[in-house]
């Protein structure tokens, strides 16, 4: 379970201080997948970095499984927007990077095979398609067997077919592995497809302005249902009333 209480994050000091998040509170239940949407530049990524322990809150607090977050936690994995692959490491080395940094001896071979990357272990990121790169990024997070997955626009800048592939993959992994997930996105269909609840943030400084319950999420064929379409329309309306 993730509990965020009155989170405030301010970049810089004095006259140049920029508040990115102001008094944001939210709760994500264990094994729940929640999507977070908001106008671009509203502080979504900042919120995610704070949840990951990369940024210390200016005020307020974040608790994970009852413990206060004071830095990076080993049971939390972050998937970066462009996958954050290191171009000088092979697919295998990239997938095992987080494990090695944590001094763990496990390998990522099985995870890579599950994500359809078997045979590509010795390739470098520049030899992969965008969709494959994202899968390597996901493999890196999964290799840690995390309890919490934080995802920063995992399908941004992908073509629509690849995007749906990756979205189905994330949903499938969530069913299979049962992690607690927070997915930041600016894609409204993605937010509805992957969020049991959808948190709508305000323009900067970010706070939660609406929580949309999305009980149909995860049902087979949800993407084609009238309920899905009306949820997307509703979300579009909510965001439309909240600036660009």
């Amino acid at each position: 379970m993730i509990e965020v209480d009155g989170l405030t994050l301010i970049y810089g000091r004095g006259g140049t201080a920029v508040p990115a998040v102001a008094g944001l509170s939210m709760v994500v239940d264990s094994y729940e997948l929640v999507s977070v949407v908001g106008p671009s530049g509203c502080g979504k990524t900042t919120l995610l970095f704070a949840l990951d322990g990369l940024l210390a809150p200016t005020a307020g607090r974040i608790r994970m499984h009852g413990e206060e977050v004071r830095g990076v936690r080993r049971d939390v994995a972050l998937i970066l927007q462009d996958a954050g692959l290191l171009p000088w490491k092979t697919v295998r080395a990239n997938a095992e990077l987080s494990l090695r940094i944590q001094g763990r001896k496990e390998t990522a071979g099985k995870v890579l095979a599950e994500l359809g990357l078997a045979g590509f272990e010795k390739r470098y990121p520049s030899e992969l398609s965008e969709g494959m790169k994202r899968r390597v990024g996901i493999a890196r997070a999964l290799a840690l067997q995390p309890r919490v997955m934080l995802m920063d626009e995992p399908t941004a800048n992908l073509d629509s077919i690849t995007r749906e592939h990756i979205q189905n993959l994330i949903l499938g992994l969530w069913w299979e592995m049962g992690f607690t997930g927070v997915l930041v996105t600016h894609d409204m269909e993605e937010a509805v497809f992957l969020g049991k609840r959808i948190l709508v943030l305000s323009a900067r400084p970010a706070r939660v302005v609406e929580v949309i319950e999305n009980p149909g999420m995860g049902e087979p064929g949800y993407r084609g249902t009238p309920e899905f379409v009306s949820q997307v329309a509703h979300l579009r309306q909510v965001l439309g009333g909240n600036g660009p």
């Binding site: 990369l54 990076v72 080993r74 972050l78 954050g84 290191l86 990077l97 944590q102 890196r140 840690l144």
Partner: peptide, 8 residues
């Protein structure tokens, strides 16, 4: 960020 988030 990708290595920092792993606790580097």
């Amino acid at each position: 960020t990708s290595v920092r988030s792993a606790g580097a």
